[in-house]
Amino acid sequence: MTDLAVNHDSDLHDGSHDDEHHDHPSDWFYIKIALILAFFTLIEVGTYFESVHNAPEWAMYAVLTFLMVVKFVMVGAYFMHLKYDTVMFRRVFIAGIVLAIVVYVIMFLAYNRFGFA
């Protein structure tokens, strides 16, 4: 039976399966990622304190959003192994994220939350 169960689906399978479990980084690598994440979180928290509070609002939004996205991507890519795993997981997850962003942003647009329409 096993000879029938070979991978035969090239349109979905990107060949990463074989090395799925070899590419996983070392513990030290994970610790480094966590340190970077902690550092970004520190910056985020830092924006809260008075000294930076006088910065223009758009700059605050820009910096915070940027750091949020970077942290999001790092956890997804390294801790959740999306970087090493098969492309299908990435597609399914990103489909959900993109769809969520699109529909809810459109909803906000329809609510005239961004100042036009």
Partner: peptide
């Protein structure tokens, strides 16, 4: 199908652009 939902809401006062 994800980009058309507000056509159920044309009379809800969405505004002309929406």
């Amino acid at each position: 199908g994800w980009g058309v939902w507000a056509h159920h809401m044309f009379v809800s006062g969405l505004g002309p652009i929406s």
